[in-house]
Amino acid sequence: MSAIANEAGVDRTTVHRRFATREALLSAVFQAKLDSAERVLDEARLVEAPVAVALHRYVEGIIPVSREWPVDTRRMMQKDPEADRRRQEQSARLDAFVQRAADEGHLRPDVSPAWARAVLDQLVDSMAHRFPEVAPPQAADLVVDTFLNGLGAT
């Protein structure tokens, strides 16, 4: 709570007035991250847009979300069934998108969609946190190129 107060430029009492417990604060953080991720998924148009376009939109949008909310939402899932449901729905949307990329021939046939999804998640996480100086549009260019050409059909 002290670290949050410091980062926000307020005293700890102000944070406690808004959030009675550490868990309430964490829940608010996780919900904010889930809300932001939901907007990114919607705006990426994972079902309607061409695969490369949707992937770029997703990556360019989710990198700032990951940077703004650098928390692992899986931590909260045991305590908040609603947050867990939302996270699972978001994950299923990405799984379906990666399956679509495979079905449309954008991924090599010898690469399982589960592996491709794991690689995508790691590329996004690495770009968001290990390369914070790279702007989201350029980060998306690099992630999409690496994903589609590193795992892409030849």
Rank of each mutant, 00 (worst) to 15 (best):
S2M: 06
I4S: 13
A5E: 12
E7M: 15
E7S: 15
A8R: 01
A8F: 08
A8K: 01
G9V: 10
T13V: 12
T13P: 01
H16P: 00
R17M: 03
R18L: 00
R18T: 01
R18V: 04
R18M: 00
F19C: 02
F19Q: 09
A20M: 05
E23S: 15
E23Y: 06
E23R: 15
L26D: 12
A28S: 15
L34N: 03
D35N: 10
S36G: 06
A37M: 10
R39A: 10
V40R: 12
D42F: 05
A44E: 12
R45P: 00
R45E: 10
L46P: 02
L46Q: 07
L46V: 05
V47Q: 14
V47F: 04
P50S: 05
P50M: 08
A52N: 02
V53S: 08
V53Q: 08
A54D: 01
H56N: 10
H56F: 13
H56I: 00
Y58W: 14
V59P: 02
E60D: 11
I62D: 05
I62R: 04
I62S: 09
I63L: 04
P64Q: 02
S66E: 14
R67T: 02
E68L: 08
W69I: 12
P70Y: 06
D72M: 07
T73P: 08
T73N: 14
M76H: 04
M77E: 13
Q78E: 14
Q78S: 13
Q78V: 15
K79Y: 15
K79Q: 11
D80F: 00
D80R: 09
D80E: 07
P81F: 05
P81D: 08
P81Q: 07
P81Y: 07
E82V: 14
A83W: 04
A83V: 05
R85D: 08
R87T: 09
Q90M: 07
S91W: 03
S91F: 09
R93G: 07
L94C: 00
D95Q: 07
A96V: 11
R100A: 03
R100N: 01
A102S: 13
A102F: 03
D103C: 00
R108C: 06
D110F: 05
D110Y: 07
V111I: 14
A114D: 12
A114H: 09
W115I: 11
W115F: 13
A116R: 02
A116H: 12
R117P: 00
R117G: 08
R117T: 13
R117V: 01
A118W: 11
V119D: 01
L120D: 05
D121G: 11
D121S: 13
Q122K: 14
Q122T: 14
D125T: 15
S126G: 12
S126F: 08
M127K: 04
M127A: 12
M127C: 02
A128Q: 01
H129C: 04
R130I: 02
F131I: 10
P132Q: 07
P132A: 09
E133W: 06
V134I: 13
P136S: 03
P136L: 01
P136I: 09
P137S: 11
A139L: 06
A140W: 06
V144Q: 03
V144M: 09
D145L: 06
D145Y: 06
D145S: 05
D145R: 10
T146Y: 01
L148Q: 08
L148C: 09
N149M: 11
N149H: 13
G150A: 03
T154D: 09
T154S: 14
T154G: 15
